[in-house]
């Protein structure tokens, strides 16, 4: 029982072929630099777009094969977009209620979920009046309330501050474990992936893919080509190339900020 992907598609100049199986439990990550096709892959899994050829199946149910595609509604796939995509004409409460009303047997306590994700005070506000970070938190709760069979998250924490990121990461982990909801989490932040994901699918610019245990893959990746941006003691941005050991060492020093977002 898993998400089986065996597809080919065109991403910029490269033809990318992916053949892998993601487990239908826990949180799997998709990691890679910008423009490598992470979002495109998520859209194929959700059924919002179709690849050129191949097959996608989930728990032995075929979602895509040439000339036949199951709709996103029938796939029951939740999707947290990079740009939140709340319904701007509704307030937060109505956004959430509309999502929950689509499930035949709602099992989640809306108020408890709002509390956990820190959006209780936003319920009566119009969706388009929220900050980007608030919108993303609401979008995550909205997707959870629709009770999908698989939740896809496309860089959902990009607009959040450090503290909020930690809270959300913790809540996502707990929710996935408690409700046995498999998640696929796309990010180009090694830090987020490391904290959140059990397994990792790594996409490279040249079309190569790797799949394995996330910590191991990330270590290997950073060792090979760690390129991190740091600030020196004059708060000037400098670029360092580090080994994995150096990288871990610097990350533990609180006076030195290191962003592990790989810069192109």
């Amino acid at each position: 029982m898993s998400l089986s992907i065996d597809i080919s598609y065109q991403q910029s100049a490269h033809k990318i072929s992916i053949a892998t199986e993601l487990p239908n439990q826990g949180i799997s990550g998709i990691f890679g630099p910008s423009g490598v096709g992470k979002t495109t892959l998520l859209r194929f899994i959700a059924g919002l777009d179709n690849p050129m050829t191949g097959k996608i199946s989930f728990n032995n149910q075929t979602w895509f094969k040439p000339a036949a595609s199951v709709s996103p509604q029938q796939r029951k796939v939740g999707f947290v977009f990079q740009d939140s995509r709340l319904f701007p004409h509704l307030d937060v409460r109505s956004n959430l209620t509309l999502a929950q009303s689509q499930t035949k047997a709602p099992q989640l306590d809306q108020a408890a979920l709002c509390e956990a994700f820190g959006i209780i005070s936003l319920l009566d506000k119009r969706a388009n009046k929220l900050s980007a970070g608030q919108q993303q938190r609401v979008a995550i709760v909205r997707s959870l309330l629709a009770q999908p069979s698989l939740l896809l998250l496309d860089e959902p924490l990009a607009a959040l501050d450090r503290h909020s990121k930690q809270t959300i990461i913790q809540q996502l982990k707990e929710h996935s474990a408690k409700h046995q909801l498999p998640m696929i989490y796309v990010s180009h932040s090694a830090n987020e992936i490391e904290q959140l994901c059990d397994n990792l699918l790594m996409l490279h610019h040249d079309g190569r893919i790797e799949f394995g245990e996330s910590k191991q893959l990330l270590q290997h990746y950073l060792q090979q080509q760690a390129s991190v941006v740091a600030c020196d003691d004059k708060l000037q941005q400098i670029t360092l190339t580090l080994t994995a050991e150096q990288y871990q060492h610097y990350r533990q020093r609180p006076h030195l900020f290191i962003s592990d977002d790989k810069k192109e």
Binding site: L48, G78, R85, F87, P88, H89, Q102, S143, A146, P148
Partner: peptide, 25 residues
């Protein structure tokens, strides 16, 4: 298409999209 895609992934039927998203927006 953005809000409509979001509605698709929340499981809204065609009629629900017309009623709750397209006409109000």
């Amino acid at each position: 298409n953005k809000e409509l895609e979001a509605a698709d992934t929340l499981g809204l039927s065609r009629w629900s999209k017309i009623r709750h998203i397209i006409i109000p927006m």
